[in-house]
Amino acid sequence: MQIIIVGCGKVGSTLAEQLSREDNDVTVLDINGQRVEQLVNELDIMGYIGSGISFDTLMEAGVKKADLLIAVTGSDELNLMCCLIAKKAGDCLTIARVRNPEYSRETEFLKKELGLAMVINPELTAAGEAARVLRLPTAISVEVFAKGKVEVLKFRIKPDSPLCRMEIQEIGPKLKSDILVCVVERGGEIIIPNGTFVLQERDNVYVAGAQKKRRNFLSVSASAPDR
C-alpha cells in the first residue's frame, strides 16, 4: 500500500516504522524538517517538509496515488482538516487522530461527514484498557469485541487455583459460575477444549460471559497472573 503519514511525533514515527517493515510504501510529512530527515534516514522512506493542510504539499507527497492517509499531528483540528483535503484531492482512505473528548463523542458523525475510515484516540483507548484491567485485576488481558458489548478475559492458572486439574464441565457445578471457556493455551499450543478437557497449572485460559458472571468467576478461581 502507498501510505502517507502526517505528523512525525511518537505516534507517527512508530506507525512509519511498523508500516514500512510490512513492505508498505510509506511517505511522512511534517513541518519539522529535522524529524522528517531522521525518519527518512533511519527507515529509508520518502519524506516531505510542510503542512498537512497544504493542498500543494499533499499533492507533492503523492496523495493522488495514495491508498491511505493517516493524520497524527498534535492538533485534532489539523488532523481532521488534513483528512478532509486529502479526501477531496485524492481517493484514499483517511484516518485521523482525535484526542479531544468532545470530538471523540462525535466519532460517528465525523466519520460520516468527513469521509473518515477511522478515528483513533490512543490515550482514550489506553484509559479504557486500564479501567477494564482495574475492574478485573486477576485478568492478564481483556479483549473487547462487538463495540464493547463482549469481553474475552485471559488469565493464567496458578497451582493453588481450584481450577487446577479440574475438567471444564465441572466448572459450572463446582464453582457455580456460568462462563464459557473459549480457548486454552498450553505450552505454545492453542486448544479448543471440550467438556472433559482437564485444566492444568500455567494454562492460559480465555473465557467469555456476562460481566457479573465473569467477575464472580475470577474471584472464585483466584488465579492472579504472573506480571
Rank of each mutant, 00 (worst) to 15 (best):
E60C: 08
P159G: 01
I191W: 07
P101M: 10
V152T: 04
P162K: 00
S219H: 10
A16H: 12
G90T: 04
R135I: 02
K65M: 04
S223K: 10
V119E: 00
T57G: 07
I49G: 07
E22Q: 15
V26I: 14
C182G: 15
S223L: 05
F155N: 10
V63Y: 04
D178A: 07
V6H: 04
K87Q: 12
V133H: 12
A86Q: 06
L136T: 15
E42M: 11
L69C: 04
A208K: 07
I3T: 10
I120A: 02
Q2G: 01
N100G: 04
F155R: 10
L163I: 05
K213H: 13
N32K: 11
C82Q: 02
V98G: 01
Q2W: 00
V205Q: 01
V198K: 07
I168H: 03
E185W: 09
I70D: 03
M46F: 06
E123I: 12
L114W: 08
K149S: 08
L175D: 11
Q200D: 04
N194H: 13
S223D: 09
N194F: 08
T57N: 02
K174H: 03
F217R: 09
L93P: 00
T14L: 14
C82Y: 06
G7M: 01
L110T: 06
F197W: 07
Q34V: 05
K149V: 07
L218C: 02
G195H: 05
L134Y: 01
K65A: 08
A210R: 15
T196Y: 06
E102I: 12
V220D: 05
G209T: 14
G195F: 03
G33K: 05
E170A: 11
K87N: 13
I3W: 12
